[in-house]
Nucleic acid binder design. Structure first.
Lengths: 353, 353
DNA sequence: ATAATAATTGAAAGCGCTTTCATTCATGCA
DNA sequence: TGCATGAATGAAAGCGCTTTCAATTATTAT
């Protein structure tokens, strides 16, 4: 195995490495100012000049220096995103589309993870801000108070995604998690279920998870029902956790067990379905299971997961457009709702009897 | 819905917005040079001075300007990654860990997607290079020739991941995809299978997918076997595609059908398993199915997917360390192999009879 | 033709920071 | 006590680019 020593750049020396704008200008026989214009604002310059400079740039293999450009123009053409984790496929999809739209619009994306912790989110955002991002995508609505202050004072556009804030205190792109959970619950209620359980995500540091639990409770309350003790459990998003969660909420004598389990996301629901099978329970015969998100697998996993479809890619793309529009002074909706829809599949049915 | 006009920054005016290093220096009663040192290289400065400057910085809420810093120091403290897509959970995990390790080491991550296309990869990498990244993580070994040239001339450290290049032409962190596929196939062979099919990923623009197919062929050839016509099919990575793929490779009279199907990744394998069930085939009774990657779900999906475990998170972290070490002039392995291991679960068994 | 206007171009001043280099001051040694 | 070292500081020169502002030239109107 060979070891390599990095080429420790000798600063302020051997600077002859890369060609700079002035070289291009010299070759083209124009001033750096004109060269800059020819490259960046072609229509502010004569046609012949434009070509002359372009040719010179290509010939020299000129690559602009973003730092210098950013410093001089005060524009970094970079957007930041702080997400809880990329490990959740639904977030990954959102970031994927965010990047691709940003790319189309000529911006780059810097990502950082928060691990569902507001303090780390703040730290990461600060970091990105120092790096000169011109816009920031955040997930959810619950952030460190200092974060908003920071964003406000620096005048950096930002947008909360995956949520629809009623009071519109901040720009947002998303949907009402409470209402979506209500709809999911109502669907189950209308099917005739009366004994419920919920395997929710960890509410702490995750307003979406919390809101979904609120929605479930609310819908039940409207019909005079509630989640009995031990029928609401919080688990980190994961398949393993869904399995554990199911065991926990199914404790107790059979006749008291829930007939419907609502999961905070699809991963938990997958786990619940797998564990139900392991427990010898038929889904949906003995137990209805619903999820939230609608990932690629949800439609394929037998018996098909009934879930709330969340357009994560769309939100990513919308966030990109919102941010870029704000930055470029174009009109941008302060609040954009996206459609979530109930997708009924095989994992739900009326309760037995 | 309110419309907002972005606060179009008036350039070269209202510049009083943010506090700069000279402000901090002034408040601390020192020169900008000392302020810079106090903040960046604390041990090069007197203890009292250090504190004085720090206090001033805090008091003013000083936030350094990364562009200026990058321009002056020629260091951006930013690493780039061009990945095919974030939509594949295995890549998402890799990027996740890359970011988190980078973060620990004080670097930021800029990501861009290539959509499995070398030309787009080149474009994206060029983009990142312009933005001053100091290192680049790539996936796979097949890249646009110009990309290597670019990297070489600019002297930017880079690393190919998910692969182990025998000739070590470029730094890499990964495993031998051919050999891994051989192992997977040998396992099936040893189980007694003789009629095989493969649902591979699209080889074009994806050397890993191609290598896995090569490995399967190679292992079969060693035992005098081959993939018959129509028993090797390429599909984009996806569950739907796995289902389609299975139908395709299972065509023909029952006695000629394969008894083992090797899938290019786990998503395809999931699809194959689901489709087998839909076709009334028992897995592993009638058909053994293996995947590649070992995602979170693989252990949970009944009957449990036999697959090759790929340490994607580890590769991400190793890539971060490699790149940072190179950049900082510390020793770094040119070539690092990571362990992939066969995880045997319920989806495989000896063929009937 | 000539004056007034618009379109191009160049000179030069930074953007906010880091780093070299020279200077100053304290320290140790003879 | 005097001189050589070394440590701590400041002055100043950029890093490579964009943009203002003034100067020049090409257009058009009178």
């Amino acid at each position: 195995m060979t070891m390599e020593r990095g080429t420790k750049r000798k600063r302020f020396q051997e600077s002859a490495q890369s060609v700079k704008l002035s070289d291009v200008a010299a070759l083209a026989g124009v001033s750096p100012a004109t060269a800059s214009r020819a490259l960046n604002t072609p229509d502010k310059v004569g046609a012949d000049m434009r070509e002359r400079v372009r040719a010179a740039a290509v010939k020299l293999g000129y690559v602009p220096d973003a730092a210098a450009r950013a410093l001089a123009s005060r524009r970094s053409r970079t957007i930041g995103a702080v997400v809880p984790t990329l490990d959740n496929p639904i977030f990954a999809t959102g970031v994927q589309r965010l990047e691709s739209r940003l790319n189309e619009r000529g911006y780059a994306l810097v990502v950082a993870g928060s691990d569902y912790r507001v303090d780390k989110e703040l730290r990461q955002a600060t970091n990105l801000l120092e790096r000169g991002i011109e816009g920031l995508m955040l997930m959810g609505t619950e952030h460190h108070p200092s974060l908003y202050v920071l964003l406000e004072t620096r005048g950096v556009p930002h947008v909360n995604t995956w949520v629809d804030e009623g009071d519109a205190a901040h720009p947002c792109i998303g949907f009402d998690n409470v209402e979506a959970a209500v709809r999911l619950t109502d669907y189950l209620l209308d099917l005739g279920h009366a004994r419920f359980a919920m395997i929710a995500g960890i509410a702490e540091g995750n307003d979406r998870a919390a809101a979904r639990a609120v929605g479930v409770r609310e819908a039940l309350a409207r019909r005079g029902l509630r989640l009995d003790d031990g029928r609401l459990i919080e688990e980190p998003y994961g398949v393993r956790e869904g399995r554990d969660g199911l065991r926990a909420v199914m404790a107790g004598p059979p006749e008291e067990r829930p007939t419907a389990v609502i999961c905070g996301n699809d991963l938990l629901a997958f786990g619940a379905i797998f564990e139900a099978a392991a427990m010898g329970l038929d889904v949906p015969g003995d137990l209805s299971v619903v999820g939230f998100d609608d990932t690629e697998l949800s439609s394929h996993i037998p018996p098909g997961l009934t879930t709330m479809h969340v357009p994560s890619g769309e939100m990513g793309a919308l966030a990109a457009d919102y941010l870029v529009n704000r930055i470029e002074g174009k009109p941008a909706r302060h609040r954009t709702r996206v459609e979530v829809r109930l997708v009924v599949r095989g994992s739900t049915a009326p309760p037995r009897g």
